[in-house]
Structures are given as structure tokens and as C-alpha cells.
């Protein structure tokens, strides 16, 4: 169980996040949606310990975590992995893929934490990436980089993966691949997946819950499947109206999508 309780964060007079409480069960995926500046990213950064909340607590499996990752224990830090929005800045472009991933191995070994081998993590994410292992990151496309980021996040066997608009810099097909991958990992490893999402069309239908943020407040939480029917808040309605997905127009359709993934696997 991963929960955020009464999180509040104000930047000067600007209320970025106001008293947000959120609970996610193990093995559950949650979409955090809302307009730009509604506090989604701030909330995620607080959860990951990159930012200190003014008040409120982050609780993982009953343990209250320290407010910032400088004060958290290593195992708490490693248990929550963050996937950044911009894969071009999240990896050092001069390093090889191997060197990038081995940073994680090195740090984990130093703290005596069990860690997946770089090759295994990469193969788990996408077998095709193995041939890039000794190539510099700058030769990789955005989608490939994001997969390397996911492999790196997977290595210390985390309990929570936070994906902060991880597909906003990618083309639609790569974005779909990334989300399919995240869902596969979530299913197979029974992780908690918290994703900030702008474009739900992009994503797949496997989300379990959705939470809508508006001007720093959490205005609505619902099961993803029921959301269209039960959404009450004005912003939620407007949000639903904006996306084809909620009007039954899925492109590609689930069948096409499955075929696409199969084709990818063959290449």
C-alpha cells in the first residue's frame, strides 16, 4: 500500500498542491490527470522525495517515509522509482547504455541491495535493446531511451513506479509501447504504477483507477472503467469530452494494438 496523506506544498503564495490524500493498493495502477499547473508533477516529486512537502506524509507499506530523499533510507529511496518526462535529459548522452545501467548496480551493491543485472533488465524491457548495450546513449531514439530509463528503474526491484508524463516527448507509437511495457511490468511484478498522463488516447485501457487534479486539489477519484459515467466535477467532464477514447473511438483498437505489439516482437 502506497499512500499520500494530506500533502500540501505552496511555492510562496502559489498553492501547488493543497491537502491531497491518495491511496494505491499493491498491484494497482492509477492515472493522475489534470491540466498543466494543477500540481500533478509536484505531487509525484513529493512522493519520490525530490521535493519536500510543507505538511503531510508519504507512507509505503505502513512506514512513514522521511520528507526528502536525502533523509530517507536507501531501501526507501530504491523502492520508489521515478521515470522522468524527458528521456533526453534523464540519461547522460555520453555514457554507454551499460555504463548508465551499471550506475544503479554500483549504488545498490554499495548499500547491499539485491539488484537485477543490467543485461537482464534490458532484455526484460525489450530484447532488441541488447544490441545497443555498448553504444552511447546519444545514438538511441527517444522511445529507446525511455525504455532504458524503465530498465534502470526496474533494476533495484522497486515497489512503486512513478511515471511522470513519460510519453509526452515521444511519438504515438513509442508512447503506446512504453505504456504497454509499464503495464506488463506492473502485472508481472505486482508493482504500484502511478502515472501522470496528459493524453489518455495514447494509453491503453488497462488502467484501474483515475484521479483528477484541478488547481492543486484532488477533485475526483474513480475506477477508470466507471469514470465516464460517474464523473461529476466540471473539469472532469471537460476532460472526458476532450478525448476520443471516452467516445468509443480507440485508435488503434485493442485488437490492432495486440497485433502491433506482436509485430514489434518479431522485428
Amino acid at each position: 500500500m502506497f499512500s499520500l496523506q494530506n500533502i500540501r506544498k505552496h511555492y510562496g503564495a502559489f498553492p501547488a498542491v493543497t491537502d491531497v490524500s491518495l491511496e494505491i493498493k499493491n498491484g494497482e495502477s492509477l492515472v493522475l490527470a489534470g491540466e498543466s499547473g494543477s500540481g500533478k508533477t509536484t505531487l509525484c516529486r513529493i512522493a519520490a522525495g525530490m521535493e519536500k512537502a510543507d505538511t503531510g506524509q508519504v507512507i509505503l507499506d505502513g512506514n512513514i517515509l522521511a520528507p526528502s530523499c536525502r533523509k530517507r533510507s536507501f531501501s526507501d529511496c530504491a523502492a520508489i522509482q521515478y521515470i522522468f518526462q524527458d528521456p533526453y535529459h534523464a540519461l547522460e548522452s555520453g555514457f554507454t547504455v551499460r555504463k548508465t545501467l551499471e550506475e544503479c548496480t554500483r549504488i545498490c551493491k554499495r548499500h547491499q541491495r539485491e539488484v537485477m543485472a543490467a543485461e537482464d533488465a534490458l532484455a526484460y524491457v525489450d530484447r532488441r535493446l541488447l544490441e545497443y548495450l555498448d553504444r552511447p546513449v546519444r545514438e538511441l531514439s527517444g522511445g529507446q531511451r525511455q525504455k532504458v530509463c524503465i530498465a534502470r528503474a526496474l533494476m533495484p526491484n522497486p515497489k512503486v513506479i512513478i511515471a511522470d508524463e513519460s510519453t509526452s516527448m515521444l511519438d504515438k507509437k513509442s508512447g503506446m509501447e512504453v505504456f504497454d511495457l509499464l503495464h506488463r511490468i506492473k502485472e508481472e511484478k505486482n508493482l504500484i504504477l502511478l502515472a501522470v498522463l496528459h493524453d489518455v488516447d495514447f494509453s491503453c485501457t488497462k488502467w484501474e483507477r483515475i484521479a483528477i487534479m484541478y488547481q492543486g486539489c484532488l477533485v475526483e477519484q474513480a475506477a477508470f472503467a466507471d469514470f465516464k459515467t460517474y464523473a461529476k466535477h466540471e473539469y472532469s467532464r471537460a476532460w472526458i469530452a476532450a478525448y476520443d477514447y471516452f467516445h468509443g473511438n480507440l485508435h488503434p483498437s485493442p485488437a490492432e494494438r495486440a497485433a502491433m505489439n506482436e509485430r514489434n516482437a518479431d522485428i
Binding site: 522525495g49 529511496c77 530504491a78 534523464a90 550506475e103 549504488i107 534502470r152
Partner: peptide, 8 residues
Amino acid sequence: QYTMMMKG
């Protein structure tokens, strides 16, 4: 930030 988060 990743390295800082991992307590590198």
C-alpha cells in the same frame, strides 16, 4: 536528480 534520488 536520479543519482541524488538513489543516494549516489
